[in-house]
Simulated assay, not measured.
Amino acid sequence: MSRNASESQFVTFSLGEEVFAVPVEAVREILDYEEPFKIPHGPHYLLGLRDVRGQGVPVIDLRLKLDMPKAMRTPHTRILVLDIPLGNKVLALGLVADKVFEVTPFRHDSIEGAPDIGVRWRSDYIQGVVRREGGFVVIIDLARLFSDSGSALASVAGGAQAVA
């Protein structure tokens, strides 16, 4: 619960030099990185499954999902375990981050929309952008980012096999 109705709490993390944020209420826990159990024939950004308190949780390399270059794992690499509402269900998902920074409030009036660059580009996953400390923080719309692949990921999480 935020301290002020005009602000919301976010967890900030990095992918390389870029800083991203997700709503704190979507973050179940933050884990040290462990190599996930590989799943054959999954999307290129699906690293595999990780056991999280008895539940098989798909682990996603967000860099690959966003068409960024793959990175080497470091001692700072973490997995954010998220609960993402998709329609009438909740998708449990592990998101690999190069580094997790903090939980921080952003005022609603400081959140700008995705920038318009005059051409179509895939910005629908951007919920907003916040100016901060000489840079920007991109707030990710988790439901939009995973809605097109959510059903395939949900079936992996539920242990069902994909049908070709």
Results as ranks from 00 to 15, higher is better:
residue 5 A to C: 08
residue 6 S to C: 00
residue 8 S to D: 11
residue 9 Q to W: 14
residue 10 F to C: 02
residue 13 F to S: 12
residue 15 L to G: 08
residue 16 G to L: 01
residue 17 E to K: 12
residue 23 P to N: 14
residue 24 V to G: 08
residue 24 V to K: 14
residue 26 A to P: 00
residue 30 I to K: 03
residue 30 I to W: 00
residue 33 Y to G: 07
residue 34 E to H: 11
residue 34 E to W: 07
residue 36 P to A: 01
residue 37 F to I: 08
residue 40 P to T: 00
residue 40 P to W: 01
residue 42 G to T: 15
residue 44 H to V: 08
residue 44 H to C: 02
residue 46 L to W: 06
residue 46 L to R: 07
residue 48 G to T: 10
residue 51 D to K: 03
residue 51 D to F: 02
residue 54 G to K: 03
residue 55 Q to T: 15
residue 55 Q to V: 15
residue 55 Q to K: 09
residue 59 V to F: 09
residue 61 D to E: 10
residue 62 L to V: 15
residue 63 R to C: 08
residue 63 R to L: 11
residue 65 K to V: 12
residue 65 K to C: 12
residue 65 K to I: 06
residue 65 K to M: 08
residue 66 L to H: 01
residue 71 A to I: 01
residue 71 A to Y: 04
residue 77 T to N: 01
residue 77 T to Y: 00
residue 78 R to S: 13
residue 78 R to P: 07
residue 81 V to Q: 00
residue 82 L to E: 09
residue 83 D to T: 06
residue 84 I to D: 04
residue 84 I to S: 04
residue 87 G to M: 03
residue 88 N to Y: 10
residue 90 V to A: 00
residue 91 L to H: 03
residue 91 L to W: 04
residue 91 L to A: 06
residue 92 A to C: 13
residue 93 L to R: 00
residue 97 A to R: 03
residue 97 A to F: 12
residue 98 D to Y: 03
residue 98 D to T: 04
residue 99 K to G: 08
residue 101 F to E: 12
residue 101 F to S: 04
residue 104 T to K: 10
residue 104 T to N: 05
residue 106 F to C: 13
residue 109 D to Y: 12
residue 111 I to W: 02
residue 112 E to M: 13
residue 114 A to T: 11
residue 114 A to S: 15
residue 117 I to G: 01
residue 118 G to I: 07
residue 119 V to P: 00
residue 119 V to Y: 11
residue 121 W to D: 13
residue 121 W to P: 11
residue 122 R to V: 14
residue 122 R to D: 15
residue 126 I to T: 04
residue 127 Q to L: 14
residue 128 G to H: 09
residue 131 R to F: 02
residue 134 G to Y: 05
residue 134 G to P: 06
residue 135 G to L: 01
residue 135 G to Y: 03
residue 136 F to H: 11
residue 137 V to G: 03
residue 140 I to L: 13
residue 142 L to C: 15
residue 142 L to Q: 15
residue 143 A to N: 10
residue 143 A to F: 06
residue 145 L to D: 07
residue 146 F to N: 04
residue 146 F to R: 05
residue 146 F to M: 10
